Simulated scan of single mutants.
Amino acid sequence: MRLDPKHKISRKGLTVWRLYGIFEMLGILAVACVVSYLTIRNDWPQWIHAIGITLTLLSLIFSVIIFPKVRWERWRYEVREQEIEVKHGLFIVKRTIIPMVRVQHVDTTQGPILKKYDLSNIYISTAATIHTIPALAMNEADELRARISDLARVAEEDV
């Protein structure tokens, strides 16, 4: 069996994923507040109120604390001359090998939160799908994008 890819994504990616978890949790909190309001206003049973609080707390624990950490620890990638290997997953760990000859183009993107933390996502497009390497330091993402592009060009010339 092959060794795991050796490169990890930036540690700042953990912070960004936790922020995304907070945004998701705020949506759940809004729903829980509406349910709590309706429970009090309409004299519904108190267990409905308790379920809303419990779900909000579980959401906080899982989407902000546990899931981002596990996701960050499992994310690995490696760019070789003939292929790109990506390993990721939360419950099911997925390993993908992308042959360089299949790479059509490589993009980097940066939204406002990634920009604040000087991070960028890399999108590797093939004919069939788009693969992502998330939360890389901006300079590392630019270098990796250029390297993949060069290797894909060389692989295409060899075919």
Rank of each mutant, 00 (worst) to 15 (best):
A32G: 07
I40G: 05
Y37K: 04
L26E: 02
W44Y: 13
A32S: 15
A50P: 02
A50Q: 12
V34C: 09
S59K: 06
V16N: 04
L26V: 10
A50W: 13
N42T: 05
C33L: 15
R41A: 12
I40R: 09
G52N: 06
T54D: 03
Q46M: 14
L29R: 00
R18H: 04
L14N: 11
T39D: 13
I51T: 10
I28A: 14
T56N: 05
S36L: 08
Q46K: 14
A30N: 09
W44R: 02
R41S: 10
Q46V: 08
L14M: 09
W47R: 04
L29A: 14
Y37H: 07
V35E: 03
W44Q: 04
I53A: 15
I53R: 04
A50R: 09
G21H: 00
G21K: 01
L19D: 00
M25G: 10
T56P: 02
L55A: 11
S59Y: 06
W47S: 10
G27C: 12
M25F: 08
I28Q: 12
S36Q: 09
Y20T: 01
I48D: 10
V16E: 02
M25N: 10
L29Q: 03
I40C: 04
F23N: 03
N42Q: 14
I28C: 12
W47Y: 15
S59V: 00
W47P: 06
G21R: 01
S59D: 14
L19N: 01
L38Q: 08
I53E: 08
Q46Y: 11
